[in-house]
Amino acid sequence: MKNPWTTISKKEVYDNPWIRVEEHQVITPTQKKGIYGKVSFKNLAVGILPLDENGYTWLVGQYRYTLDEYTWEIPMGGGAIGQTALESAKRELKEETGLQANEWTEILKIHTSNSVTDEVGYVFLAKELVQGETAFDDTEDIKVWHLPFQEAYDMVLDGQITDAISMAAIFKASVLLKK
């Protein structure tokens, strides 16, 4: 489809090691002048749904500064641009849970909030797991929880898990596991 938007100009209004914010002067699809803000992340989003042979998974709990609340979610993090999503996923799984997986399947590509950001996330199902030691980043105070996959699914349904990538991953995995 042809892009109905016209960009007149764009300028960077904020930049740090993790994000860049731009303000765009635009002509909207209805031919009116307007502005549009765009947040570009300097990493890929990667999420991992580890699943063992007994149907258990792992969630990580942490206090999310931006939300000002504690959340439960699948192991996830940022992957450096230039590194594959799978390489980043393997690192994040090890850091946050201590797990290493011998079987990896990409199950999801997701645009995290396509009205304001161009961020892309990738989610992998990790199986054939081996437990090791965690290696948290200095910004992480994480609790790791090993629980039945069905319980994680129920947490999404009753609103205990609200992270979009976690929700999408758990729902997608539920469908794939029933096939």
Rank of each mutant, 00 (worst) to 15 (best):
K2Q: 13
K2V: 15
N3V: 13
P4Y: 06
T6Q: 12
T7D: 08
K11F: 03
K11T: 15
E12Y: 04
Y14Q: 04
D15V: 10
D15W: 09
P17I: 03
I19C: 06
R20M: 02
V21S: 12
V21L: 14
V21A: 14
E22I: 07
E23C: 10
H24A: 07
H24M: 10
H24L: 15
H24R: 12
I27T: 12
T28G: 06
T30I: 03
Q31L: 14
K32P: 09
K33N: 15
K33F: 12
K38D: 06
K38Y: 07
V39G: 10
F41E: 12
K42D: 07
L44G: 06
A45E: 03
V46Q: 00
V46A: 08
G47Q: 08
L49C: 04
L49D: 01
L51Q: 02
L51A: 09
D52C: 00
W58P: 00
L59A: 00
G61V: 02
Q62Y: 11
R64V: 12
R64M: 14
T66C: 13
L67M: 14
E73N: 04
E73K: 14
P75M: 00
P75Q: 02
G78W: 11
G78C: 03
G78E: 05
A80S: 07
G82D: 02
Q83I: 14
Q83L: 14
Q83K: 14
A85L: 07
E87I: 13
E87L: 13
E87P: 08
E87S: 13
K90M: 11
K90G: 00
K90R: 12
K90Q: 13
R91H: 05
E92W: 03
K94S: 01
K94E: 04
E95R: 11
E96K: 15
E96N: 09
T97Q: 06
L99F: 08
A101K: 05
E103N: 09
E103G: 08
T105E: 15
I110K: 10
H111N: 04
T112Q: 11
S113V: 05
N114Q: 11
S115H: 10
G121S: 11
F124Q: 01
F124H: 06
A126T: 07
K127E: 11
E128F: 02
V130D: 02
V130P: 05
Q131G: 07
G132E: 09
E133I: 02
E133M: 11
A135K: 11
F136E: 05
D138L: 00
I142S: 02
K143Q: 05
K143P: 00
V144R: 04
W145Y: 11
L147W: 01
P148H: 03
F149K: 00
F149T: 09
A152C: 03
Y153V: 10
D154E: 13
Q160P: 00
M167H: 08
M167E: 12
I170T: 07
S174Y: 06
V175M: 05
L176D: 05
L177R: 14
K178V: 04
K178T: 12
K179N: 09
